[in-house]
Amino acid sequence: MTGATSLAVRVNRRIAWGLLIFLVAPALVAVPVSLTAQNYLSLPWDGLSLQYYRKIFSSPEWMSSFLQSAVIGLSSAALATTLGTLAAVGLWRMSAGAGLLRAFLLLPLVVPPIIAAMAFYRLFVPLGLIDTYAGLILAHTVLAAPLVLITVSASLAGFDRRLEQASRNLGASHAQTFRRVILPAIRPGVLSGAVFAFIASWDEIVVTLFLSKFAVYTLPRRMWNGIRENTDPSVAAAAVVLLSVTLLAFLVWVVLQRRARNLSSSQSDNG
C-alpha cells in the first residue's frame, strides 16, 4: 500500500485512531469527575478533592459491596476455572465428535443475559437461593465457565498430543499426566481464563439485578442504583475503583497471553 493509495489509507488511519481513542476515552471521564469538589457530577474546575473517595471508603454500604463483589468474583472464578479446565481437557481427549457437546457447553455465552437472568430467577425462587451468596456464585460460575473453556481449549490446541502419550507409555497415571505434563503446558491459558472469569463476575449486573435484593449487594448493583438516582459523584469514585481493578486484571491477562503464545510457539518449534 504505497504510492497513490497512501492518501486514502492515511486519512482512514487517522479516523481509525480517532475511533479507537473514542472507544476508550469516555470511560476515563469518571476519573476527573470523581475528584470534583462540587456536590454534583462535574469536572473539577474549582480544585481537586478526595472527599468522594473518603466517603465511599468510610461508608459501610460501599465497603460491604466491594467485599461482596470480591468474594463472589473469586469464588465463581475458582469454580469456573476448575470446571472449565476439566471440560476443556475432556473435550480435547474426545477430539472427534465433540463439536455438538462443545457448542452446548458454550450455551451460557450466547444466551442474552436478560434471558439467563429470568431462567435463574425462576429456578432460584423455590430453592431459596435468591439474595444469597450461593445463588450468585452459582449463576456467575455458569456464565463464566464457557470463557475458561474457550481460553483453555485455545492453549490445548498448541499442545503436542504425543507428549501425553509418551507420559502414559512411561507409566504415569492419568492423574499424574494431567498434573505433571498437561497442566504445566496450559498454565498460562488456565490463569488467563481465571482472570477472565473473575472480571465476568466482577462486572456482572443484569443477572445480579434479578438475583440480589438486600442481603447481597455487589458493587455494580450499588452503582446501578446510584446511576439511576443520578446525583452523587461518589458513584464516579466507585466507577474509578471498579475500573482500576478491571485494568489491573487486563494487564495480568496481557502478560499471561504473551506467555501462553511463547509457550505454544516453543512447543510447535520442537514438534
Binding site: V24, A27, A30, D203, I205, N230, L242
Partner: peptide
C-alpha cells in the same frame, strides 16, 4: 474489558 456499566455511566456524565 471496560464494564458496560462504567461506559454507560460515562455517557450519562457526558
Amino acid at each position: 474489558w471496560i464494564s458496560v456499566l462504567v461506559r454507560t455511566f460515562a455517557w450519562i456524565m457526558i
